[in-house]
Nucleic acid binder design. Structure first.
Length: 448
RNA sequence: GGCCCUAUCGUCUAGUGGUUAGGACAGCAGGUUCUCAAUCUGUUAACCCGGGUUCAACUCCCGGUAGGGUCACCA
C-alpha cells in the first residue's frame, strides 16, 4: 500500500488537512505501507514558501512522518508536459484555440480532453459504487497550455508516477473523481482505490472556517496550547472509531496504528466539538505530568507569564502553580489566562495589600473569637519552623478539636485573601515563613 | 438549479431484522472536600418523515425532507 497527502501551500496548515494526513498515515502504518507527502504548488500566484514550512512544521509536530522525499509538484512541469504532448499525439486530447475567459479578448491555447463516455462508475472504499454522469462535462480543460497543467491532470499524473495505490481524501473530491478517472484512462494508468472521508464541520454545519474556529494546526500548539497527542486523539475520533467497545478513548499513536482500519471509517460528516478537544487535552496534560521535560516546559511558560506581570519569581511558586494547573486547567491558554487574571497573585511573596475581611467569617458557622484563638495558635505553630509533616499533623489535630471548617477556612483565607484558591497546606508549602507570619498577623488583627 | 454524498441523544459514536437502543464529551443531581478545581455515584436526552417488504424494522427497498459537497483556463 502506498498513500499520500497532497496539501497546497496557499495558507496555514489546516486542521482538516492534518486529519486527512493522519488517516493516510495510520492506514499506511497499519497495513505496512508507505505514506508520502506531495506539495501541490502549481498555483504560483497563491503558493508561498512560508506555508510549505508551516505544513512541514505542523506535520512533524504531530509526529506524522512521511516516507521518502517530499515531492514538489511545481518541479515536475517537464514530466507533465511530456504526458500532455503524448495525449495530444494519440488524439485523446487536443489543443484548442479560443478566447481567454478573463474578458481580455486575447487568444489562448488550452488543452482539452476528449470525453466520449457518458458516465463514470467507480467503487469507493467508504461509499460503495458511485455513478457520475459525465456528459455535461464536455471536453474539459486539463491544462492552461501544453506547458501548464491544471490540478486534475497533475494529480492523476503524479499519483500514478508515485505509484499511489489508495487515494484517501476529503469527500469534497467525490465530484472531481470522475474527471480524474477519465484523465487516468486516457493516460492508460491503473485505477487506484478511492476512499472519500467525510469532512469536519463547525457547529453551524458549514466548513471549518477562520472566522469561527482556530483552524491552523500550529495555532493549536502556539496559541491554544494543545498537546499534539490530544489533537491527534481528538481528530482521529471524528470520522473513525475502533469498533471495539470497552476501550479507553485515550489512545497514543502506536495504539491507533494497531487499531486503525478502513472498517472503522465513518460516512457522515463530523462536527467540531471544542469541549471534547479540551477534555482530551486535560487528560493528556495529566498523563504527561510525570514526564520531567513536559513539566519543565509548563514551568517555563509559567515563569514567562509571571515575568510579564512583574511577579517575584520563585522556583517553589512556579512548581506549585504547575501542580495546580496540571490538575485544574484544560489547556495552556487557560493557565496563562488564570495567571494574567491574577488568580495566583496571592502566591507572590509579598504582604497582601488588601484583605477581604468579611471573608474570614463568611461561613455563618465561624465564630470571631474562636477564629482569633485558632489563628494565634496556628501562628505559634508556624513560628517554630515546623517541617511539612509536623505542620500537617498539628493542623489536623487542631481541626479535630474545633472542626475542619473552623480551622482550614480561616487559615486558607488568611494566607490567600481569596474566596477560591488552592488548599492552605499547599500554599503554606510554597510561601516563605516570614510572609506567612505577616499574613497571619494581618488576619488576627481583623478578628478583634 | 443539475449532479453527487449523508442522516441514532446537544456533540462524537456502538448497533448489520427480534436490544430495557450501549459508551464518551457536555448537562443536571447527589456524595466526598475548608473554598474552587478534581474525584466518585446517579441521571436527563436519540433512531428525520411517509410508504412498502417481513411474523418482526433503527437496521432492507422506494419516495420525500433536511444538511453538506460539487458544477473554474483554483487546488
Amino acid at each position: 500500500m502506498r498513500v499520500r497527502v497532497a496539501p497546497s501551500p496557499t495558507g496555514l496548515f489546516h486542521i482538516g488537512t492534518a486529519r486527512t494526513a493522519l488517516f493516510n498515515y495510520l492506514l499506511a502504518k497499519h497495513y505496512g505501507g508507505a505514506f508520502l507527502l506531495r506539495i501541490e504548488d502549481t498555483d504560483k500566484e497563491r503558493s508561498e514558501k512560508k506555508y510549505v514550512d508551516n505544513i512541514i512544521d505542523g506535520l512533524s509536530w504531530l509526529s506524522i512522518a512521511h516516507d521518502e522525499t517530499i515531492v514538489y509538484q511545481s518541479l515536475r512541469k517537464n514530466f507533465h508536459e511530456q504526458l500532455l504532448v503524448r495525449l495530444v499525439e494519440e488524439g485523446k486530447a487536443y489543443i484548442s484555440e479560443e478566447q481567454a475567459k478573463d474578458g481580455s479578448g486575447r487568444i489562448v491555447f488550452p488543452v482539452r480532453l476528449k470525453v466520449t463516455d457518458s458516465e463514470v462508475v467507480w467503487n469507493d472504499r467508504i461509499h460503495g459504487d458511485i455513478v457520475t454522469p459525465v456528459k455535461e462535462l464536455g471536453d474539459f480543460v486539463i491544462a492552461r497550455s501544453i506547458k501548464d497543467p491544471l490540478y486534475h491532470f497533475a494529480v492523476v499524473a503524479d499519483d500514478a508516477d508515485m505509484h499511489i495505490t489508495h487515494i484517501v481524501r476529503g469527500d469534497d473530491h467525490i465530484a472531481n473523481t470522475a474527471r480524474q478517472i477519465l484523465i487516468q484512462q486516457a493516460l492508460g494508468y491503473a485505477r487506484p482505490q478511492y476512499a472519500h472521508i467525510p469532512l469536519i464541520h463547525n457547529s453551524d454545519g458549514g466548513k471549518m472556517s477562520k472566522r469561527k474556529n482556530a483552524i491552523a494546526v500550529t495555532d493549536f500548539r502556539d496559541v491554544v496550547g494543545i498537546e499534539q497527542e490530544a489533537l491527534i486523539n481528538f481528530i482521529v475520533f471524528m470520522g473513525w472509531n475502533p469498533k471495539n467497545d470497552s476501550q479507553d478513548e485515550i489512545m497514543d499513536m502506536n495504539t491507533l496504528i494497531k487499531l486503525f482500519s478502513f472498517e472503522g471509517l465513518q460516512k457522515a460528516k463530523a462536527i467540531w466539538n471544542e469541549k471534547k478537544l479540551h477534555w482530551f487535552n486535560r487528560e493528556w496534560r495529566r498523563k504527561k505530568s510525570i514526564d520531567n521535560t513536559y513539566r519543565e516546559s509548563i514551568c517555563k511558560c509559567i515563569k514567562d507569564t509571571l515575568e510579564k506581570r512583574n511577579f517575584l519569581i520563585d522556583e517553589k511558586i512556579i512548581s506549585g502553580i504547575c501542580n495546580d494547573s496540571l490538575e485544574r486547567h484544560h489547556t495552556r491558554q487557560e493557565l496563562e489566562s488564570a495567571i494574567n487574571d491574577g488568580v495566583y497573585d496571592y502566591l507572590a511573596p509579598t504582604a497582601l495589600d488588601q484583605y477581604a475581611d468579611t471573608l474570614l467569617f463568611n461561613k455563618n458557622t465561624l465564630k470571631k473569637e474562636t477564629t482569633h484563638n485558632i489563628l494565634v495558635h496556628i501562628q505559634k505553630i508556624f513560628s517554630s519552623s515546623p517541617t511539612l509533616v509536623t505542620l500537617q499533623n498539628e493542623i489536623t489535630e487542631l481541626a479535630k478539636i474545633h472542626g475542619a471548617m473552623q480551622v482550614y477556612w480561616p487559615l486558607r483565607v488568611a494566607l490567600t485573601g481569596k474566596e477560591k484558591s488552592m488548599d492552605p497546606m499547599s500554599v503554606a508549602e510554597i510561601l516563605p515563613a516570614d510572609i506567612i507570619q505577616v499574613r497571619l498577623s494581618q488576619a488576627i488583627l481583623l478578628c478583634k
